[in-house]
């Protein structure tokens, strides 16, 4: 009988399976296993993995740490609002605030070096989208997320907000400069 009517056999799980179906099911199961293993494999052999390191904190505490970084390592300011450009030492903990409608401060990093970047929102949800590297992270208020970044190419990068955050969302852009490493 068709799919619109009850099956002919009372006990449908004892039906025979088409050979074509069996072949395809085997392929699909093996492929599912490969895809599942690909993710732990990349954790071992790949260079793009999130550690998941996160701290619950408050906007005030996070802003205080960000201010300390700005006070210590700002090399210049730029733009209409004199946004600080911070050049931290290699390996430093650096802090990036996402807020309505700004990424603060800007950074200058060295290619080939690693930095522990803390990212948090102090108000609504935001989306960290680093272009043209195309690295995208969800940014939440109250969650200080730590990612260790290693820029691989010198250049000027923009941080676009890609989580809708109100009418100024499309104007929320930040900057990261990457300079050639000292080799």
């Amino acid at each position: 009988m068709t799919s619109l009517a009850p099956p002919t056999k009372q006990v449908w799980w004892r039906e025979h399976i088409e050979k074509g179906e069996l072949i395809w099911i085997t392929v699909v199961v093996v492929w599912g296993i490969i895809m599942t293993l690909m993710m732990p494999f990349w954790h071992v052999y790949g260079d793009q993995n999130l550690s998941g390191e996160t701290y619950k904190t408050t906007p005030a505490a996070f802003l205080e740490k960000t201010q300390a970084v700005v006070d210590q390592w700002t090399v210049r300011t730029e733009g209409q609002f004199n946004k600080p450009v911070v050049k931290p030492p290699v390996g430093a903990d650096i802090y990036l605030v996402g807020r309505l409608w700004d990424w603060w401060p800007s950074y200058e990093l060295e290619a080939g070096q690693s930095y522990r970047m803390h990212i948090m929102s102090t108000d609504w949800q935001h989306g960290f989208s680093l272009q043209p590297a195309n690295i995208n992270l969800q940014v939440l208020p109250g969650y200080d997320a730590v990612i260790t970044v290693t820029p691989n190419k010198a250049g000027e990068y923009a941080i676009v907000c890609n989580e809708y955050c109100g009418v100024g969302h499309h104007n929320m852009v930040g900057k990261i400069y990457v300079t050639e490493g000292r080799g």
Partner: peptide
Amino acid sequence: TLGVPRRHWDILFSGAADGGYEFS
């Protein structure tokens, strides 16, 4: 794939204070 954000009114960033990003 080229990085264009979803839910975004203006990827030309005509109103961004210090310039935006130039998508390809």
